[in-house]
Design a binder for these strands. Structure first.
Lengths: 253, 253
DNA sequence: TTTCTATTGTCTCAATTTGTTACAATAATA
DNA sequence: TATTATTGTAACAAATTGAGACAATAGAAA
């Protein structure tokens, strides 16, 4: 939690506030104790990556997240946050777990992030309270996104899932669980469809599967299985300028 | 949501309160806007059932649920509620979804339940606010449980999943989702183990599978597959006094 | 132009898993 | 002792998956 919407919200407020002790959002708009975090997956052609943000002046890394308005559905809040972060609408989104341990909330970390950005929260401020966080994963087309660094408090960029920096609080655990659920859903949901451009080669599709599962697959078996599922449409060949047979392009039908 | 802990909590309070307008719990102990609901599965030998409670004087049926204390983990709150309802400790419990739509909260229904029990909540009382609910399913041994009817506001009893009464708010949807997730988890988790007594026949195990999946399975294939999984230990035969070969008893190892 | 190389699409046969039928063993009953 | 319903397992067929082989081919090298 604690980013995306939140930072944008802070930005709005800080414009109205004085320089050296900016004003924090009150809890009139957002539900207290409730947050969401999103694990945003993308595939760069080789590696499975997720979007991670870094809070300014802290060296702290976190998942993009935010809060839920009193007047919006939980899922709409998450979509709003994703739109703000990625510019994309109609993102494939799946809720996978809600994290509600007492130990996951850490006022010290929150305070450090706020103070590094010149906010001076009261001791009892709602942002320093306990939060239960509903976690979602999103699948997006890596090439269509220009992640938006936030001039106020953080930058955001892609990290390969096996080269993640240490994340604050329980965010490492959240990523781990997201990846496990993604693996489980690989066969039954449209994971490949949402991580690839609309037309792709069989090899690219296989690479997505291999990146998610973390293991190599047999080429001929994979191809036979995919074609047998009757979910692919074959298009023209893709001439890549390589000295070998050109692969067909496919799309999901 | 809205039962179990809740009713027990009300009971505690009402003992201190006057007869004709009882006192409602304040929000000092529980986190606002956050609830849990539990779908408690049991197997009676033939049918898959769940525990449903009925609010007194309303004809309203609901899932057992409750609220989360500021000082306890989310999961501990659910376990506490289950213990109070079933008397059982160490229950197999799995979180499966969090329901956060605005439309799921219904102050009229809540008000009706409270007033039918002689509580007079203020219009802005926290119990009438919006709630986001984290849903869990539990698997228990049908025979070990004596569901505890609550003398204050509700009774609780088993209903076959295909003979459920209409449930309040989105509780029907919650049950539907629980059942879908249970089906998905049937192979990979210890569903059979937790719905059966420690020793059981192959036929009983098959009946659990059939009840969860909602379809008949082939006896010989089922038996071969289960034995092949290498998760069962064979024990003595069970003589049921029937005029045919006695089946072996098995347990999970 | 011809040869060479890496990759792709498909085929074949073996190995494994699953579907289906058959049948012997057996616990109580008639 | 024969009968009946159910259980455990074997046997074979059908379907799926594993593994290797091979021809087609797009460009590079000779």
């Amino acid at each position: 939690m604690f980013s995306s919407n939140f930072t944008i919200y802070l930005e709005k407020y800080s414009a109205l506030a004085e320089k050296n002790h900016k004003e924090l959002p009150s809890n009139h708009e957002f539900m207290p104790h409730l947050a969401y975090d999103s694990v945003i997956f993308g595939f760069n052609g080789t590696q499975l990556k997720i979007l991670v943000l870094e809070y300014h002046n802290t060296g702290l890394f976190a998942l993009p997240g935010g809060f839920v308005k009193y007047t919006e559905n939980l899922e709409d809040a998450v979509e709003r946050g994703l739109k703000e972060r990625t510019g994309l609408d109609q993102i494939y989104l799946e809720q996978f777990h809600t994290f509600g341990d007492l130990s996951r909330s850490n006022p010290e970390t929150m305070g450090r992030i706020l103070e590094a950005n010149d906010y001076k929260p009261d001791d009892g401020h709602w942002l320093l309270h306990r939060f239960v966080s509903v976690a979602y994963y999103a699948l997006i087309n890596y090439d269509e996104v220009e992640p938006r660094p936030d001039e106020l408090s953080d930058s955001i960029s892609w990290y390969a899932i096996d080269e993640l920096p240490g994340l604050i609080m329980d965010h490492g655990l959240i990523v781990e669980k997201a990846l496990n659920v993604l693996k489980d859903n690989l066969e039954k949901k449209l994971v490949g469809m949402n991580l690839l451009p609309s037309k792709f080669t069989m090899k690219q599709l296989q690479q997505v599967y291999e990146a998610v599962l973390g293991e190599k697959l047999r080429r001929t078996t994979f191809q036979r299985k995919m074609l047998g599922l009757d979910i692919l449409v074959r298009h023209e060949k893709l001439y890549q300028g390589k000295a070998h047979k050109a692969p067909y392009l496919y799309s999901f039908r």
